[in-house]
Design a protein around this nucleic acid. Structure first.
Lengths: 260, 260
DNA sequence: GATCGCAAAATCGTCGACGATATGAAGATT
DNA sequence: AATCTTCATATCGTCGACGATTTTGCGATC
């Protein structure tokens, strides 16, 4: 339950002003926002709530996120809500249309292909660095993550499994030792998760897990070429599974209705 | 009241409220801000002014950018200034310390190495895509850019030359046909330019130009391996030149004084 | 003379309010 | 009856103001 927002350090604020926390309940739609726990700073809470709502498909693309509603939900002024929305827009989780409000982003198939292409390029570069720089302890930690995956697989609760899969990729990328590339990849993985949540999970967890094991094996043996190939094959497989499952389902129709 | 609403792309705003544009002059330091031309929307103007100030070394790292001063300079409220500052922070041009204001970013040597490493990874991937996807017309345009470089080289005005060099890299990257990777690279090239401006230009324009020509030649011949190698060699050379020229000069001392 | 503590100034974070724009509905017209 | 116009509502963009935090200048003390 750590913060997965790529920026680790400088995201603080001061919480001054008189705190009028409680207001009336939300009057609009968007019943998919869960204000989660009241701990931590508010900005991160809002961001995480929207993010989780998208991942759990409670906030389908095109859903409007009016500023007053978020203000009422979280008991803050529009200034802070607006700041969070700007950050969500930068991370391509929402789209901010001038004078027309924020909506959950709806990646087109074209965008999806570009996102996966970019992700392949980044993960290939990072796994190559990982092969060069990993230590024995790192491999042990990766094996621990793989065991976590098996455990989450038996649960069959998709969001939990997706979380462990994300963790695996991010951990492998972290071995590359380049925070900048890691940050970009974090962003891309978030967008991919959003897309996966969009086009239905389907849960090919078993075969994904196998491919993860292949990648770790190649890394541990220092075989850079095989590691890169395994990662590429894994990502291509993931993209193919997604695109073929739902080329243009009812959800896409709903998107068009909302966007018209 | 037809306020000019020449909406070009996503970065628009509405310019409402009564416009009290003129105030007193700046009272603080930062004499390096040039409000540039009064055309276009204000946000982009502020962003570009700070960016240009950094590239031209009028705003050395550690320079404070107080919000009230920017408000007076550009005749806008703190809300819009604050928005721009958030964007500048995201692009790693400034650092936003909570409750302590914004300062020009000061990349450490370690960060610099990571930035160049990331840039090599991205440009290698993009040039490989460019080899696959370029057309004959693209090569002609690249040759036109190379001619522009020669012209700028004779001028010996560093910022102009750096601009053409940036254009060249961005154009090559654009041939890759992936807007996401292109966006990341744009960010990295900005940070590199900032670093180059920091550690002194020195102007090895001639040998950079030669390397650019090599890259175009490899692309035009469809030799992916050589194109990637040429790009890598070019970037390694650029980094080496920078790091060796100024390992730790007076500027770094001034940074430490400002940061202490 | 240097150091510590206190007060004043500067600056930042947040808030509510006002005008402007887009959205949606009701009414008039063809 | 369908369409266009007009108006009311919802929502956004910007602004000035207030409280909180940090920084700084000054004076008392050792």
């Amino acid at each position: 339950m750590t913060k997965q927002t790529a920026s680790a350090a400088p995201r603080k604020s001061a919480a001054s002003g008189r705190g009028k926390a409680t207001r009336g309940p939300a009057k609009t739609d968007m019943g998919g926002i869960a204000p989660v726990d009241g701990s931590g700073d508010v900005e991160q809470r809002i961001y995480q709530s929207v993010f989780d709502g998208v991942l759990n498909q409670r906030l389908p693309p095109g859903t409007k996120l009016p500023e007053p509603a978020l203000c009422d939900l979280f008991g803050v002024s529009r200034a802070v809500v607006r700041k969070v929305l700007q950050r969500l827009e930068h991370d391509h989780i929402i789209e901010l249309r001038p004078n027309r409000g924020a909506v959950i982003a709806a990646p087109t198939p074209e965008e999806t292909r570009k996102i996966f292409e970019a992700r392949r390029a980044l993960e290939a570069a990072l796994v190559e660095l990982a092969v060069k720089r990993h230590s024995g302890k790192d491999i042990d930690e990766l094996h621990a993550l793989l065991r976590q995956e098996e455990e989450a697989m038996s649960n069959a609760y998709q969001p939990a499994w997706a979380q462990t899969a994300r963790n695996f990729h991010l951990r492998v990328a972290a071995l590359g030792g380049n925070p900048i590339l890691l940050g970009y990849l974090t962003e891309l993985i978030s967008r991919c998760s959003l897309i996966v949540a969009l086009y239905e999970p389907a849960g090919n967890a078993a075969c994904e897990h196998e491919e993860h094991c292949d990648i770790v094996d190649a890394i541990s043996k220092g075989d850079a070429a095989r590691a890169v190939a395994a990662m590429n094959a894994h990502l291509v497989g993931l993209e193919d599974r997604i695109c073929l499952e739902r080329p243009s389902s009812v959800k896409t129709l709903a998107q068009m209705l909302n966007l018209a």
